[in-house]
Structure formats: structure tokens, C-alpha cells
Design a protein around this nucleic acid. Structure first.
Lengths: 188, 188
DNA sequence: TCTCATTGATTAACATGAGAATCACTCAAA
DNA sequence: TTTGAGTGATTCTCATGTTAATCAATGAGA
């Protein structure tokens, strides 16, 4: 029944010129109840996962040149920016705020420290934790890149509409906080 | 001056139930003219790039277990699904439809071919092109994974609202098609 | 026909994503 | 005090992202 609901939704799908060859055999809509919409597999709905991916790629394509000009990757920029905004953080907090996995962060810390953008030292209170902090050199990157970054966002605001950007951000936040059934994230 | 423009825009930001903790320190709106919003660097607006990243991560967290159960990665799933839907494609088309970079696709083709999910052969007409096609084994993956995938999307529809999902997809598409000034992508 | 710019695909090198295993440290219970 | 479970970080391994360089094939023009 859950799948039937899906197939009914697929009516929203635009015709889409069937460039493919086979499978034009739409069975008469007689069997609606027990119909296994196996056909719907070839005519998928738009995917949130891909939609988010493409949108993000489009947005990032405008930032990458700016970051590349300063020889920092997108992820390195996130780490630097978070440290700039939040001050001293331990690795877990930093990884969370910058949306970077712990193993990735470990590697990045090594490079960022070598390049003099951040400093690393153990927490006196808890020997397991590693405290990270931005350096003046790191702050320099921020003050150089941020204006360019804001310019791009201003451009997006102008083209897309400030209010709609805010609305989109709201929806994205809500989507990110959704708790579904087969969470699979909720261990137990 | 450009930054001032930005900071003025930030007034549109809605209060938004402060689920977060810190930063409730909105400076009084007294300093509007000559204020050097150096503070704005420390108090950034919400970022589209990060919002899209988090939302996507949240969505994918529900799909990854399904894919992992069938021993395919997210990207491999996209490739298989596109080939299933579109039939025979050359590498460039496939990379575009699956939102995967050409170098990545080249590597993936090798693995997917070894595992028997796709076949690869040169185009007779144009020796440069490589034509990819899904195999029955690959179709098997689709028929196994797709129902689970649809279930997750149905769950998202139920929680988020079908209409809002459609609205979100519309906005994402539009955002992805935005042409900004410093395009840096727009060759020509 | 030959040359050469173009196009499609691959390779190379480095950085990150993702999951599992391991190490180091902490803290509470025996 | 010692053990052992839990936590934070690191390491390992494989797959992909990203850019630049390279290779192979095509096609138009000299």
C-alpha cells in the first residue's frame, strides 16, 4: 500500500521522451489493487539525494575558484572557518561543526598544522582530547577569503531571492533533523 | 562597503527557534552606518553550502544501510540506477546523469564490470566513446534495492510532506541552474 | 593525404569519505 | 588498586572527489 501511494505520485512525473526502447507495455489500469508497480522502477521520481547533490555542486562551483586561489580545499576552509568562529575546540566538536569525519579530520590536522594555520595540543584535563585553535596565519586566510565568499552569497541572494534562500535553508535544516523510522542511525 | 551591504541583509534573518546555544548577542542596531562589521566574520550567516551538505548527509544516512546490505556504494548505486533507467549510454552521458566525475567513473567501471553489474564495449561509430550497459545481475540489484529506497522516500514524504518535498526539489533544481556572475564554470 | 586542433577517455597525484579496527585515556566498580 | 567498559583519537583500507596531464580517436582544413 505504501508502494501504491508512490505509484500514484508518479503521475506528477512528466512524460519524458522515452529515449529508451523497450518496456512500453503499460498494463491496463485494471489491476490497481494487487498491482505490483514494477514498472515504476524505470520511471523514477526525482531524488532528494541527487537534487541535494547537484544543488550543492552548483553552489560550490562558485566557491572553489576562490578557495583554490588561496590554496585551500573546501573542507580545509570549513575547518578554518569553524575554528575562527568558535575559538578553541576539541576534535570531536570541530568535526561535528565542520561536518567532517573524524578520520578525515585527523589527516587534515596534520596538514593544516604543518602549514601553520592551526595549532594542536592535548587537553590537560582529559588526556584523550585534542584541542585545536586557529593561528594568526589561519585568521589571515579567513579575512582574505570571507569577503569573496560573502560576495558569492550576495550574488545568490540577488538571483534567487533572499527570502527564498532563507526558506530553503529552513527546509534544509528541518530535513536534516528529520527522524525517520528505519533510522539505522539510531543504534540500539 | 560590500560587507555593509551584506550585514544589512542579515536583518531578514528570522528569529528561528534557537535550537542552538550560544550567540544570542545581537549588537544593538545603533551602529548601522560607520560600523565596521568585523564582527560579521565571527557571526556568519547560515551557509547554503553547509546546509545542503548536512541535509544530504541526513538523507543519505537512511539509504546507506540499504546499499551496504547489498554491498554497493552510493555512487555505484547511482551508476547502476541510471543505466537501468536509460539503457545504453556512453561514459560522458552516464557521468553527467549520475553526477559523477569522469575519472571516478573510469575507476568505477572497472570494478562494476568485474562484479558483473555492467558491460563495456567501444562504440563502433566513434572509437573514442565507451558504451556502458547494465547486466541482468545489475538489474537484480535494482529490483532488490529500489523497493527499500522507495520506502525511505515515502517515509520522508510522510514526515516532511509530499508537497514540501516537491517544493524543495523545485528550489534545488532552480538553484542548480543558477548562473552567477563570476561563474568560473561558464566557459564560452 | 597530412597536419593539427578538438573531443572522449584514461591516468596520475593528492585530499577526503566511509567503515572497521586499534590505541590511549578516563572513570566507575570490584 | 586493579580491572574493565566506555570514550576520543588515530590508523588502515578501500572508494571517490578534484585537478592536471596524457593518450587515443575524430574531423576539418591545408
Amino acid at each position: 500500500m505504501l508502494i501504491n501511494e508512490i505509484s500514484s505520485l508518479s503521475e506528477h512525473t512528466k512524460p519524458m521522451q522515452n529515449k529508451t526502447d523497450s518496456d512500453a507495455k503499460q498494463p491496463s489500469a485494471s489491476d490497481t489493487a494487487a498491482a505490483k508497480p514494477k514498472r515504476s522502477l524505470r520511471e523514477p521520481r526525482r531524488s532528494l539525494a541527487i537534487g541535494l547533490l547537484r544543488a550543492r555542486e552548483a553552489v560550490m562551483s562558485h566557491f572553489r575558484p576562490i578557495l583554490a586561489a588561496h590554496d585551500v580545499t573546501e573542507q580545509q576552509w570549513r575547518v578554518i572557518r569553524v575554528l575562527y568562529e568558535a575559538g578553541k575546540l576539541d576534535a570531536t566538536e570541530l568535526a561535528d561543526k565542520a561536518s567532517i569525519l573524524a578520520p578525515s579530520l585527523t589527516r587534515m590536522i596534520r596538514l593544516l598544522e604543518e602549514r601553520g594555520f592551526i595549532t594542536k595540543h592535548k587537553d590537560e584535563a582529559d588526556g584523550r582530547r585534542v584541542l585545536l585553535q586557529i593561528t594568526p596565519a589561519g585568521e589571515g586566510i579567513v579575512t582574505e577569503v570571507m569577503p569573496e565568499s560573502l560576495k558569492v552569497y550576495a550574488d545568490i541572494d540577488a538571483r534567487f531571492g533572499v527570502q527564498r534562500v532563507e526558506q530553503l535553508l529552513d527546509m534544509l535544516e528541518e530535513l536534516a533533523s528529520l527522524k525517520l523510522e528505519n533510522g539505522s542511525v539510531g543504534e540500539e
